[in-house]
Design a protein around this nucleic acid. Sequence first.
DNA 1: CACGCAGCCTAACCACGGTTAGCCTGTGGT
DNA 2: ACCACAGGCTAACCGTGGTTAGGCTGCGTG
Lengths: 208, 208
Amino acid sequence: MSTPAAAVPLSRDARTRLRREEIVTASARIFAEHGYAGVGMRQIADAVGIRGASLYHHFPAKEEILYAICLTVTREPNEENLPLLDAAGTPARRLATLVRAHLRHLARRRVEHLVALHELASLTAAHRAEIDGYRRHYQRRVRDVVAAGMRAGEFGVPDAQLAAFGLCDMLNGFSNWFVEGRELELSDVVEGYVELIVGRMLGATGPL
Amino acid sequence: MSTPAAAVPLSRDARTRLRREEIVTASARIFAEHGYAGVGMRQIADAVGIRGASLYHHFPAKEEILYAICLTVTREPNEENLPLLDAAGTPARRLATLVRAHLRHLARRRVEHLVALHELASLTAAHRAEIDGYRRHYQRRVRDVVAAGMRAGEFGVPDAQLAAFGLCDMLNGFSNWFVEGRELELSDVVEGYVELIVGRMLGATGPL
DNA sequence: CACGCAGCCTAACCACGGTTAGCCTGTGGT
DNA sequence: ACCACAGGCTAACCGTGGTTAGGCTGCGTG
């Protein structure tokens, strides 16, 4: 076999990327707990077993770590979920698929979402503008599909914009209270929200 | 007349209270814009026309200002809105009344809500626990009324807890995007949300 | 009218934390 | 085998910002 199981050679910049990822993940966890401002570089460094100053071999500044967190967690839904809205099927089914994907993504990257949701104000103006851009784009796409469903007579809501706001807030609020393996099961929440949002609130009928 | 219109005598500790209020309001505005950690005492002091050190005649610490913001904006809904759930009427109508009151409160204290929503991590552990307590209490009361509506056959939702989460997230998300006099009118949003949440999502029928 | 304190001031302290400088080492590529 | 550099370390800097000390003043109260 071409990939030996015992030795893990792992190319130089593969390890580099891993290290970066490790720092980002650890930072997200600590930021989520103590807030971005309440965490020092030395504290982050401790979590990955190096010294504070060494972090600057991976990130040029503390804010860049936060930016990395916000960027991935804001870009991924755009790249992974939005295509689902372009797939075949009725607006209702496409939205239901998006809701499922969105919630599962939120669960998978829960802490990163918490940080991105709470610490936008700690970003550089430029970085913040970029993140906001992604968010607005996402929401606009959702609104457009809601509007399409209204035109198709599938949805009974009075205003697409308002429904889209409510929909997105419901989805994103999820990361504030959901914790894996406590009280509520993920798949139950996902299917429950599909029914609450697409089935009941928007008023779609038939299988989703 | 006993209250002269021209001169405004204003007792000593009335002025004191006003000053405190002024500091809190200004702080909320600046915190909302730059984040709690991004704002210094001197910056807050500038906004009310005094020097940084003078703030300590009104608050023993910076965190106490944040605490004051969070406390009022978290306690007020408990004291003003929750009694509405105990009033006469069906669960649906009582919930509709709560939604209206909640949204109007959010609009009135918009910036304070933004701060309280984003800066919980900057509070002392003790203060944070207290605020969390108020929030959980509020949500529990909402959930109970949803459950009551289910038992009465008014609501068609499958799970009261899940519906309550969605409901509260939709309500609170409101303060993230609503700005007075831009695009959407407050009363339209309020009535739209009453229909979206109580009418459509929960499935209440009849006038709300 | 005198006293006292609320409320503001200036000055300064001091800890914390982001960041930089400069060095050492092991390793992967030539 | 050698060289370069990624990646880590120690030490130190230094601005920022929360907080304290101590003094002045003018209003409201006894």
